[in-house]
Amino acid sequence: MAHTENEILEGLAEIVNEETGVATEDVKLEKSFTDDLDIDSISMMTIVVNAEEKFDVRIPDEEVKNLATVGDAVKYIEGAQN
């Protein structure tokens, strides 16, 4: 049961909001986690841990540093589902 890109974005936005208080509507594909959303490295790890559980995927630590934007994360999760 793969999630669509939109479902992943929505789910990710909920996690980001829950963990950091950033409004869900601000979590857009082109936004940078650090520069635009002001998310620090520990918060990023909480988002990763929660996303892994929500989408039933594994995001290895060495991949996390490549997830600069929300779109990067959505794309990675989408691919990792298969």
Partner: peptide
């Protein structure tokens, strides 16, 4: 499991 431990 260990992977689910809160990073905070």
């Amino acid at each position: 499991g260990a992977r689910r431990v809160n990073p905070f």
